[in-house]
């Protein structure tokens, strides 16, 4: 299964990566090989098997609706790349939503 350069560029864009042409070539080969490897799964006999979202036969434990988290803003902001006046700061994003 060979991925096209265009597909790989699309995936890179979604992952916020900007590979140079050399890296792009390597990605095409690596990703194609990975997909081929995964394609082996389609050889498995799955007739009559229900699709599952999780391999374990257990379901989600839930918590009660209680507020137990303390306010640790100062601790968290100390390790943030940039935070001022209680707000995390990032390069400007201008999309209107």
């Amino acid at each position: 299964m060979d991925l096209t350069a265009e597909t790989v560029r699309g995936i890179a864009k979604l992952a916020r990566l900007r590979p140079n042409p050399e890296e792009e070539q390597r990605l095409i080969q690596d990703l194609s090989a990975i997909l081929e490897f995964f394609a082996q799964l389609s050889e498995a006999e799955v007739d009559g098997i229900e699709p599952m979202a999780h391999p374990l036969e257990v379901d989600q434990r839930m918590r009660e609706d209680e507020v137990t988290e303390p306010d640790r803003r100062e601790d968290y902001q100390e390790i943030a790349p940039d935070a001022r006046e209680g707000l995390y700061r990032v390069p400007a994003v201008l999309d209107s939503d």
Binding site: R61, M62, R63, Y76, L87
Partner: peptide, 25 residues
């Protein structure tokens, strides 16, 4: 006040795991 109610899970600190709120369900 900003970020006073944002904990490690909301901030996506490494290693945290979400736990479902029963009341929301």
């Amino acid at each position: 006040e900003p970020n006073r109610q944002a904990c490690g899970i909301d901030l996506a600190l490494p290693g945290v795991l979400p736990v479902v709120n029963r009341e929301a369900i």
